[in-house]
Amino acid sequence: MFTKLGGLSLEPKSVPPPKRTGWIGRGNCHMEKATIDLKRDGKDLSGRVHQLPCCVKHDGPASVSHYFKPKHKGVGEDEGLPLQEAHFRGRLLQGTTLPLPHGYSGFVLSKSSPPTSDENSHSWDTKATFQDITYWNHDYSPSQNDELFRAFHWLTVAKALHNPVTPEELASSSVTL
């Protein structure tokens, strides 16, 4: 099955409890509860998660492994990215595989039937995990300027933002102010 980017969830690998409950606030102050079960015992889809440069109006299984046959094409001349080629509905796609950064995993979630009948409660189960994403462009080579490539910058920024501040850093910051 092709995976849409919106369906992916990137979570730090080091989450100690397998189950996490989050309270998500909305504008109208109505609280929603969502439960995500980040188990790792599902299927490993590494090497098999693809983002296509088109909209396929289909949601469900497809015989991907029998029909979608990417071929490795060495290294691109411009930026040294490892290149792949594939064809979909006759169009040439050029792609590259992006490994997820160290400490991160990809999860494919599916909504599960909730144990309670609480309408405001949503439960998500892990169907599979992955460690990389292959994204494809139509008609032009993958580039570090592509949106998905640049989206990973956020992980670096987020890490810096969420690092704990040491007392020494706090003290020196106070002195500076």
Partner: peptide, 21 residues
């Protein structure tokens, strides 16, 4: 040859695919 007009009649029943081009 997906670019042939012949293919279009067979694609009527297939899932629609939207491309930028």
């Amino acid at each position: 040859r997906f670019s042939w007009g012949t293919c279009n009649s067979y694609f009527k029943d297939a899932a629609e695919v939207l491309w930028e081009s």
